[in-house]
Design a protein around this nucleic acid. Structure first.
Lengths: 243, 243
DNA sequence: TAGGGGAACTTGTACAAACAAGGCCAGACC
DNA sequence: GGTCTGGCCTTGTTTGTACAAGTTCCCCTA
């Protein structure tokens, strides 16, 4: 059972996406919404704060909230899990582990992951059958055996780890830039050496702040872009497929 | 005068960055903080919500909040304004308008900006004297004359527009991907044709939802990366310079 | 000693009330 | 006709209270 303010947020979001509240128009005042949902004003404020963080509505003190529009973003799950994002967008997703081995952590890795031994995995992910993403991931030793137990063509590692050991990826730090494809990148992704790739390096931790993985993901140019909707207060992020 | 919860958030942030609360350790409980700052628990909750959104601390119901991390992110201003970001990081920033003209809006532009005529500006930005960013920006007609009034080597357009006409960029939508440098890109940025560039396309609007500009920014690879710190609840974003 | 059961603690949710700050509009005034 | 002002509306901030839900840890029991 979701919280009351989440229910209200969901109803308002649906109304906006359904066109009940047109883009550019004013949302009902907090007092009206509170009356409509028989909730306190504070509860309504929590609800609209969610929508504002999603970039769906804007607000200024003194004036009514304005519908800014368009699509919403699920943000975190989408950013973290390639498979979850792809499936939610209706894409056919595939994956294959190409190499996997345990080794001693390099010094930078051991500092960031907090473990001396790591599990290194090289995965190739496909979208509609086309290779689009090369993942070089290093897992901390405490989660390594669970990762080794996954099938080599596991679609969603995030989902599988949640189902098997209850692991939740709660926080992530991502670094996004562009680089030229190296020899191995080019061969596996089916592009020419030196062609542009979109690189996402990330470290993910659990809710307690324990590091789980360190990853270097490389997307073929033209296949995927990152989309960020931000406002003065908040900055959600999603990933989009290019036509 | 900032709000009380902002002051508390700032103090806590400073304490965390100063090492008073070590990474991985527990933050004082809401009740303790409320007593310390002589504020209500609700006010303290607003303060810690800010830090959680910045990715600085994590929280789970029932357990004390945990200090997750290191640097904080100013997020919006940094994402939007190249100059503001660069200056805050201590970089020497420069800029030059290479071309500027009014023209009729293409159909896609007129739909997104809501104006039939637009001002097109081509700007080259430098970091420590090196060209790193090529901006192709299209402004809506209602702001065009203010932009034309700016000096051609204006460092921060965002700041200048705020100072002159009180314009505040409140919402942005950004699309980040990698592309190969075209002939003009390569010449102006001083790289070889076909070498990778990090592209950021964005549309920015005011607080009322009025579109201001549409831009296509291209960064030389290796000069700048985007950094995103996200949590289940929130996703701030910053930009980082590479060594 | 290992495990279970609670009690105490902590964060999450919800409600109510009051005042501050800023926007909006209509009516008064020049 | 244009402008200005004042009142009303709406959002922002703060406090207080109460209960729900999850975590932690100690103590007691088997």
């Amino acid at each position: 059972m979701a919280a009351r303010y989440e229910q209200i947020a969901a109803e308002l979001r649906d109304e906006i996406l359904a066109g009940v509240h047109l883009v550019g128009s004013q949302l009902p005042s907090e007092a009206e919404l509170a009356a409509r949902y028989s909730a306190a004003r504070g509860t309504v404020r929590q609800a609209v704060a969610i929508l504002a963080a999603e970039g769906l509505i804007g607000s200024r003190q003194g004036a009514r909230r304005i519908v800014l529009g368009g699509e919403r973003s699920q943000s975190f799950a989408e950013l973290h899990s390639f498979a979850q994002w792809a499936r939610s967008k209706g894409h056919a997703v595939g994956g294959q582990v190409l190499a996997q081995r345990r080794r001693r952590a390099a010094s930078a890795e051991s500092v960031r992951l907090g473990s001396a031994e790591v599990l290194e995995v090289l995965r190739l992910r496909t979208l509609e059958g086309e290779p689009v993403l090369l993942e070089r991931t290093v897992y901390a030793s405490w989660i390594a055996s669970a990762v080794e137990g996954l099938p080599s063509d596991c679609e969603s590692v995030t989902q599988a780890l949640y189902d098997r050991v209850g692991l939740v990826f709660a926080y992530g730090e991502h670094l996004i830039d562009a680089i030229a494809a190296g020899t191995e990148d080019a061969r596996l992704l089916g592009v020419r050496r030196g062609s542009p790739l979109l690189r996402q390096r990330r470290i993910t931790t659990t809710q307690e702040g324990r590091p789980v993985e360190l990853s270097d993901d490389r997307y073929r140019a033209g296949s995927v872009a990152f989309s960020i909707r931000n406002s003065i207060g908040a900055n959600p992020l999603t990933r989009l497929a290019l036509p």
